[in-house]
Amino acid sequence: MPLLTADAKGVFPIAPTPFLADGSVDNASIDSMMDFYATCSTGLTVLGQLGEAPKLDHAESLSIAERVIKRAGNLPVIVGVSAPGFASMRALTRDVMDLGAAGVMIAPPNTLRTDDQIVNYYRQAVEAIGADVPFVLQDYPLTFSVQMTPGVIRRIVNDLPSCVMLKHEDWPGLEKISTLRKFEQEGMRRISILCGNNGLFLDYEMQRGADGANTGYCFPDMLADVVNLSQAGKWDEAHDLFDAHLPLLRYEQQPGAGLAVRKYIMMRRGIIACDAQRRPAAPLSEKARAEVDNLLRRLAKRDPRAAAAIR
């Protein structure tokens, strides 16, 4: 599989990890999920924050990565390798790269406070995993409590050639995208900018210069349509489609509940067999399920893809 480059565009869904009701990994659902992603994605990320990676042991992580990579065909697969220490990060990185991963994603630990601390952390991470491994810089202050200014991102990009992608999840963050693209005009090396945060601002992020989405919304096929319409300059069509999904996007974005919503809808769509999370988990209440069902019924009036989830 080719390595990840700064030219990456499109939609790289953050894949959930399917589990059976007893908490074991559901390999059959990994296969069906990958077959679905192949219809709408240009790449994939596994073992991300909402892939329940901290609930997996090393052997399980490797097994999942191997199955996904084999099933992905020509789709580049990014593997989340964030870890408390560099020894485990190095081990997982080298193992998944040997399996054929296209690159890895690294989130900052929440102990970082200054720009110098952030830059030094990523320098040390690259020393640990190897400068030959392309990596994605994950910028998600809502979860990690680390504030990365455009200036500190520029330092990382200029100092570390193996940084080829920014997973942009800051909000408000539209000005950050514009600033980074301006830096490129002024001489900063270009990197791919794919946006997370459940795609909550994707339509305008594309207009600011993003290259696509790197998030786990339960309708990644919609995200792909928005990206494609935006890249074709069909802005009104992109906004109209995005607006139809916005109530469900907002509901799924709730911290602490979003993964349960996402897995429930993916189960309803037939992408995975079971919406179970590995414990500790926060399953949806019957009231919440009813609210999601209502959102799906409303969405089906504007996007027929939602109709299949309410039959």
Rank of each mutant, 00 (worst) to 15 (best):
D170A: 14
K301G: 06
A290F: 07
I193L: 08
V77S: 00
N27F: 15
L174N: 08
C163H: 00
A276C: 04
A290D: 11
G103Y: 06
E127R: 03
C163G: 05
S88H: 11
G43A: 05
E291W: 03
G10D: 10
V164W: 04
A288L: 09
D303M: 04
F144R: 11
L202E: 10
P172F: 03
G199C: 08
R190L: 07
R311F: 10
A288Q: 14
L246M: 14
E186V: 07
T17G: 06
G48A: 09
R278W: 07
D159H: 04
L295S: 00
G48Q: 07
D303G: 01
A83M: 11
Q254F: 11
M97W: 01
G196R: 00
V79T: 01
G51A: 03
A260W: 07
A38W: 02
P13G: 05
A101E: 08
P150E: 08
D243Q: 14
R67I: 05
A102I: 08
W171Q: 13
A87W: 13
P172W: 03
F144S: 14
I271E: 13
L62N: 12
I272D: 03
R262I: 04
T45E: 15
A282K: 10
A83V: 02
K167Y: 01
D95I: 00
E237I: 01
M33V: 02
M89S: 04
A282N: 06
E184I: 00
V136K: 14
A107I: 15
F19V: 00
G80D: 09
V77M: 09
V79R: 09
M267C: 12
I14V: 12
D221K: 08
A107S: 15
P247Y: 10
A15W: 06
M33H: 12
V25H: 11
L99K: 14
R94T: 06
L299Y: 09
R71Y: 00
V79H: 09
R262P: 00
A288K: 04
S285A: 03
I156V: 13
A6F: 02
I118G: 02
P283C: 09
L249E: 06
T42I: 01
A210M: 12
Q207F: 02
Y37N: 10
R189W: 01
G43F: 07
L249K: 15
Q117Y: 05
I78N: 06
A102Y: 01
H239G: 08
A59P: 03
A15H: 09
A53V: 14
A210C: 14
P13E: 09
R90D: 11
A260G: 07
L50I: 13
A281Y: 13
A91V: 11
I14D: 08
E184A: 01
D132N: 05
P141F: 10
R289P: 02
V96N: 10
